[in-house]
Design a protein around this nucleic acid. Structure first.
Lengths: 146, 146
DNA sequence: TTATTTATTTATAATCATTATATATTTAGA
DNA sequence: TCTAAATATATAATGATTATAAATAAATAA
C-alpha cells in the first residue's frame, strides 16, 4: 500500500524525500479520505518544518500519477483525497461530512469497461454519491422541526 | 427537462423569479457541464442586473434539491455542474477540460443498488473519471518531447 | 570527502472562487 | 395600492489553493 504510493513517486522520477515518504505513509495508514489540511496537521508535530505547500505539491504528484484520487468537496469546503484507488463508490454525508466506501461487482466491471472502451487515458476517478447518512437521518427526525 | 428543474424549485418552496427561471433554462438547454461563471457570463447580456451571487444561490438550491449534480473541479480550478442527473459517468479531460458522458447498463444498476442498499438518503452524485481524452493524446504524440 | 548542480522545501505573498452581509428590489397577498 | 416577506444585487470578506523567491537538501562528479 505504501509501496504503491512510493513506487508512483519514483516512477514519476521524483526523489524520495522524507516529507514525501511521510505523506505516503500517512495516506497508506489512513482508512480515511483526508484533506490537505488534515495531512498537514497530522504530520506537523513530527515534521515541524513541514509546509502546507509541500503537502499540496506531493498530493499533486500522487494524483497525477493516479496513485491517489481527488474526491472533491463534500459540503465542508475542503477537497478530500482518497488513497484507495480500487474501484468503489464513496458515500459522503453532507451533514457530518463522513465518507464511507461502497463496493459492488458493478463498480469493478464498470471501471474495466471505461478503461477499455472510452479511449481515454484514465488517470483517476471521483465516484461519489452525496446525501444524508443513516445516522444523520436519525438525528434529523429526533430534532424539533425548525 | 426545464420542467424538472423548475419543479425542483417550486417543490423546495422557492419562488419562480425571472433569474431563477433563466438559470434553469440555461441549464436545461446546455448539453454542457457549465461552471457558475459560465452561466453568469451567458445570461448577463440578457439579464444585465444579474449578480454572480444569484447564480451561486440558485445552483445551491438546485443541487440540494438533487436536480443538478456537482462534478467538482477538473483541473481548471472551476467547479462544474451537471444538469443531467441520469446515472452516467463523466469523462473529464485534464488537458482540454472537456467533459463527455459515458453510459453503460452498470451505471444504471449501480445507482439502484446504492439507493436501495446504502441506507443513505442520496441527494446527488459525482461520477467522474479524469484523464486525457483521445484528441489530446493525439496532440501529445505529435508535439515534440519537452 | 568536498564542491557543484539540481531538485525540493519552506515561508510568504498573491490569487480567485465562493460565501456572507447589508441594502435595494421584487413578489404575493390583503 | 399597501404591507410584509422573500429575493436579488453589490460589495466586502473569507479562505483554500497557487505562485514566487530564497533556503535547504539530495545526487553526482571530482
Amino acid at each position: 500500500m505504501v509501496d504503491t504510493l512510493i513506487n508512483s513517486l519514483t516512477k514519476a522520477g521524483m526523489r524520495l524525500t522524507s516529507t514525501r515518504v511521510a505523506i505516503c505513509n500517512y495516506l497508506a495508514g489512513s482508512q480515511d479520505h483526508p484533506t490537505a489540511a488534515q495531512i498537514y496537521a497530522a504530520l506537523k508535530p513530527d515534521y515541524p518544518s513541514l509546509s502546507l505547500a509541500t503537502v499540496y505539491n506531493t498530493l499533486d504528484v500522487l494524483v497525477n500519477a493516479g496513485a491517489v484520487n481527488v474526491l472533491g468537496q463534500i459540503g465542508d469546503g475542503n477537497v478530500h483525497f482518497d488513497p484507495d484507488t480500487h474501484p468503489h463508490i464513496n458515500l459522503a454525508c453532507l451533514k457530518c461530512h463522513e465518507i464511507v466506501d461502497f463496493t459492488s461487482q458493478h463498480t469493478v466491471e464498470m471501471e474495466e469497461i471505461i478503461r477499455k472502451e472510452s479511449g481515454y487515458q484514465i488517470v483517476g476517478s471521483r465516484m461519489v454519491h452525496y446525501g444524508i447518512c443513516p445516522a444523520c437521518q436519525e438525528s434529523q427526525n429526533s430534532e424539533p422541526t425548525a
